[in-house]
């Protein structure tokens, strides 16, 4: 993933404390490692239409503490496999945040309060800003720690470690 990468897509908006059980329910996640199969159930318990509605390149937008709950890495993986380009939230739960970076799913910490369902957003990770094209508004992204930015740039922890042979702080 290039540093200057600009993402553009529609917002799917949720509230605070979206937990990993809502992202992918325990009743599915133990069954298979087929993430495309699991992605059909992404957000099912709180938004049954999500999997059918989401378009490649769209964004999940939420309030505080997105991804709280379990450590399941299936959570960022199914979001990625559902075609979501990035998750934007006011804050993230720590394990989800780290897992998302490890799996190369951009997580964007910013003020999401002005974003409404269906708004078209442009996320500029390099410049650190989110432009709401529907509402003509710009918010700044809280920058990632350098080590996380490096992992994300490599597309995840696996390719990062293969390239560097270890952690470089």
């Amino acid at each position: 993933m290039a540093e200057e990468m600009i993402l553009r897509g529609k917002a799917h908006v949720y509230g605070d404390d979206i937990n990993t059980d809502y992202i992918i329910s325990g009743k599915y996640k133990f069954k298979t490692l087929d993430m495309d199969e699991l992605a059909r159930h992404c957000m099912e318990d709180i938004d049954p239409e999500f999997a059918a509605r989401v378009q490649p390149g769209d964004f999940i937008v939420a309030g505080e503490n997105f991804g709280c709950g379990s450590s399941r890495e299936q959570a960022p993986l199914v979001i990625k496999h559902a075609g979501v380009a990035a998750v934007l939230a006011k804050s993230f739960a720590r394990i989800f945040f780290r897992n998302a970076i490890n799996k190369g799913l951009p997580v964007v910490e910013c003020d999401t309060s002005g974003i409404r369902q269906g708004d078209v957003l442009e996320v500029d990770l390099g410049a650190g800003k989110v432009t709401n094209l529907t509402r003509n508004a710009v918010v700044e992204i809280i920058p990632l720690p350098a080590v996380m930015m490096d992992i994300l740039k490599e597309g995840g922890l696996t390719s990062y470690l293969k390239k560097h042979g270890g952690f470089r702080l």
Binding site: E73, I95, R98, N99, N102, G156, T158
Partner: peptide
């Protein structure tokens, strides 16, 4: 502390 699967693998 809890981590994800890739951190465990590393």
């Amino acid at each position: 502390t809890g981590v994800g699967s890739t951190d465990l693998a590393a």
